[in-house]
Design a protein around this nucleic acid. Structure first.
Lengths: 312, 312
DNA sequence: CAGTTTTGCTAAATCGTTTTAGCATTATTC
DNA sequence: GAATAATGCTAAAACGATTTAGCAAAACTG
């Protein structure tokens, strides 16, 4: 009671208890406290791949918000393992954590069902069905692809290849649609190749693109890692960027400014998404928000760099 | 007892209990279990800066080992906040976690004292006093700097500037010594400037180096982020790398191959260090290792790239 | 068949807090 | 001064598991 400041205690007793605690080097046991109070002061963050800087950026801002609220963050990386996201929900059900920010790139019946029956606050970053009953933060990546495609079209390019990620992920579906809408609006031909959402995936997909569409004058990549992989492949092939082929990515990770030529990208405001998701989660945890699920959609911002002939 | 497989139970009872558990959607409460068993199945990982890829690499491999052992990882980033590492030790004392991997770049009396009185397994990555009583994984970064300096000397360069991190960190102290030993052995003049261990820090330090040592023909940077920052500054100044000035980094983070020119670096085997540290920690936790503290020192590996005129 | 062992279950203690109820004391009111 | 209210402490009941002790019933032993 003294240590938590509860109850009525005489100042004399407070002194004595404090002294004794200091003498014994006493630290309250977090397990016992958690058990009794039913609060763990922990949240979980589930990311698809800790190797992707965009998730690191999200993790960083979530971590900061969590620290402000006196919470610790348990980090789980699903690394493309089937069902790892559903497994992670166990952390909530068994009381390991009080809440969760889940970055979902694949949606599955199973995940949705399990998500619905979890009775602790969850905020999903990424696309979820509207009736899922969890808070949600999204980036409008469809619009992001339209932005960058329109930008490249405005440069006079007409033979744009879209290097997409696996179609069993939501981002890939959204971004493909953005590409298609933009290309059809312009009355042009669609060219698409696929790879993993990684540097290596982009490298290989660019190789495929070079073979399949030798006439290409632009590679629009579904994320930055792929874009950087594509840059590498083009360099090896002796293709000049942006003179011969323009290249773009998406996410606006830090590496875009590091690589050469600097990669044109579309900011999906990762840090801000993380911050908002964490805020929503803590609003639920604190009881500040109690109503129906909240959804926030962030609009993308084009970042023109050298790879599309922006500033040098 | 049924769910944990303890005690003698008739198969009939097992069936019934299993059925009831399934019906009720029962999940054992981790808090209660932790309290009684005095095992949390959690470890903490304390990193200096989650924005540095080298720590992400370490985190990734630790996470993998932890997952294998059925453990979760609580990630704490100290972000240069004074005393944040000591605070993190509270996680051990209050029973939040069973053990900790601590990446220490600054050593302080306070940290050492608190580390000594923690009675749970800790493995420190980085330099610690020999008698501290905790397991330890180090990279021989002194030798790493010698390697890269010798490499640059072998290219015929003689006016090497060392771009170091803050001298109140252990890596900076070690790496400076490596530079000094190598330069003195060659009978050359020492040139050192300082900055933060970040991209911006390298950028600013390179600027200082250009002004202070216009004769420089090589910038040896204390880590890769600084090296990349230096590359950026040199490019803006119209200095050609490696023709006019050679540049090197240290850590061999992924960005070294992304940036242009690709950055010569020294691999300190971050992923391996993480793996080893996690292994040591779980050996302690499982009781597999009980003796006096273990120390592992990893030897560096030079990675020559374009920025020192290696392969194109 | 008495005596011992094995089997399978029940009840209670424990982990270390937090919270509530209860109960003397002391202080206040009319 | 009796009745009421406030104060400060103690004891006990939770939280939800794990583990141990105990005990009846069944199975074995000589």
């Amino acid at each position: 009671m003294v240590l938590n400041g509860n109850g009525r205690i005489s100042s004399k007793t407070i002194q004595q208890v404090r002294a004794a605690a200091a003498l014994l080097n006493y630290v309250p046991n977090a397990q016992a406290s958690s058990l009794r109070k039913q609060i763990t002061h922990r949240i979980a963050l589930v990311v698809p791949d800790i190797g992707n800087s965009v998730y690191v950026a999200i993790a960083k801002s979530i971590q900061q918000v969590a620290k402000q609220h006196g919470y610790y963050v348990s980090l789980v990386s699903t690394d493309g393992v089937e069902g790892a996201d559903v497994d992670a929900l166990l952390l909530l059900r068994n009381g390991h954590v009080d809440g969760m920010v889940l970055i979902a790139i694949k949606s599955s019946k199973e995940l949705e069902e399990n998500l619905a029956r979890v009775n602790k606050p969850v905020c999903v970053i990424g696309r979820v069905p509207g009736d899922l009953g969890v808070d949600n933060v999204q980036a409008n990546s469809l619009q992001g692809v339209r932005l960058v495609v329109d930008h490249i079209l405005s440069l006079g390019r007409r033979r744009l290849v879209f290097i997409n990620g696996p179609l069993n992920t939501n981002p890939a579906i959204q971004r493909l649609e953005g590409y298609q809408v933009a290309i059809r609006t312009a009355g042009l031909e669609e060219r698409v190749v696929y790879g993993e959402f990684t540097l290596e995936g982009g490298y290989e997909a660019a190789e495929e693109a070079l073979g399949k569409y030798p006439e290409a004058d632009a590679l629009v990549c579904a994320n930055d890692l792929m874009g950087i992989g594509a840059l590498r492949r083009l360099r090896q092939a002796g293709v000049r960027v942006p003179q011969d082929v323009a290249v773009s990515g998406m996410d606006d990770i830090r590496e875009c400014e590091i690589c050469s030529p600097a990669l044109t990208s579309v900011a999906l405001h990762a840090a801000e998404r993380g911050r908002m998701a964490a805020q929503m989660l803590f609003d639920r945890l604190s009881g500040a928000s109690t109503g129906s699920p909240i959804r926030a959609v962030l609009e993308p911002t084009l970042r023109v760099r050298e790879s599309t002939g922006g500033q040098a």
